[in-house]
């Protein structure tokens, strides 16, 4: 006997979230309001993503949860345990084996496939919010497709820094219509949003919004002809697996300022190391 309804939420709440998800899929990039519930974790810890995942989970799913690319950090471990306990679903750390992947701030390095759903945890879903604090105004700007303010912000980046300095939560336009916040993923991940075979769902619990990018949907990072979008990463190879194409975390290793760069995607790094790839500091770390 389980003490919880399947996937924690009551059926009425799941129906409400499911209806919001379907409208989000029908209008790609548009933020659908939903009656976000209090969850047994604080806002800011992925309550939006957890509610979307709970509404989507089936008993036969294999769930993967990542936090900044890692399967083994507090947030990821807690959410994985939460669904192990309340939905009794199988879990995995392998990107390719997962049917639902809940993520905080990364898209896995391994390409996603058609049978998968990627659920993003979103803190501030409104890309225009820091430019215009009034919800009534930002809603009107989306209705009129009036996104000049966002281009102005990127232009001011160039005027001040010589380049577009926005490096995460980089704004995108979905299917030629809505400008969307892809959640605070590094802009390195932005190209993976576009034409992805997997369904991408975004949940913002505190802000009570759900939005979606259907499979095979065009997602364009905003830019200018003379300052095109560039996906950037630290100019190093992973010190553990040697990959020079993956997104890296910089880790300070002692008080003398020594540092190492390691893949932020732990499954990607572990898989490569298991396959025999080595990095510059492989011996040191082991």
């Amino acid at each position: 006997m389980n003490d919880y309804n399947f996937a924690y939420l009551d059926e009425g709440t799941k129906r409400m979230i499911r209806r919001a998800i379907l409208k989000a899929v029908a209008v790609p990039g548009y933020q659908v309001p939903f009656a976000s519930r209090e969850m047994p974790m604080p806002y800011g810890w992925g309550t939006g993503g957890v509610q979307v995942t709970a509404a989507c989970l089936r008993p036969d799913d294999r769930l993967k949860v990542i936090d900044q690319g890692a399967d083994d950090t507090t947030n990821a471990v807690s959410i994985r345990k939460f669904f192990q306990r309340t939905a009794r679903v199988a879990t995995t750390e392998r990107t390719g084996d997962a049917t639902i992947i809940q993520t905080r701030h990364r898209i896995p390095e391994a390409p996603l496939s058609e049978g998968q759903i990627l659920v993003y945890q979103v803190p501030i879903p409104e890309p225009l919010r820091f430019l215009e604090p009034r919800e009534t105004e930002t809603r009107r700007m989306h209705a009129l497709q009036e996104y000049g303010l966002m281009h102005l912000k990127l232009y001011e980046d160039i005027a001040r820094h010589g380049e577009i300095a926005t490096s995460y939560a980089y704004p995108v336009q979905v299917s030629g219509r809505y400008v969307m916040d892809p959640s605070p993923i590094p802009k390195f991940d932005n190209p993976k949003l576009s034409n992805c075979p997997a369904l991408q769902l975004f949940g913002a619990g505190r802000e009570q919004r759900i939005y979606a990018v259907p499979p095979y949907t065009q997602v364009i990072s905003l830019d200018f002809e003379d300052h095109p979008f560039v996906a950037t990463k630290a100019p190093h190879a992973c010190d553990l697996c040697g990959d020079d194409g993956s997104y890296l975390d910089e880790v300070i290793t002692d008080d003398a300022g020594r540092r190492m760069f390691i893949c932020s995607d732990t499954d990607h790094c572990n898989s490569r190391r298991a396959a025999g790839h080595v990095g510059a500091l492989t011996g040191d770390a082991a």
Partner: peptide, 17 residues
């Protein structure tokens, strides 16, 4: 709870593809 979850995923699959 289980059949609704399975049913929703089918509807979600149909509408998103």
């Amino acid at each position: 709870p289980v059949e609704a979850a399975q049913g929703f995923r089918s509807v979600l699959d149909a509408l998103s593809r």
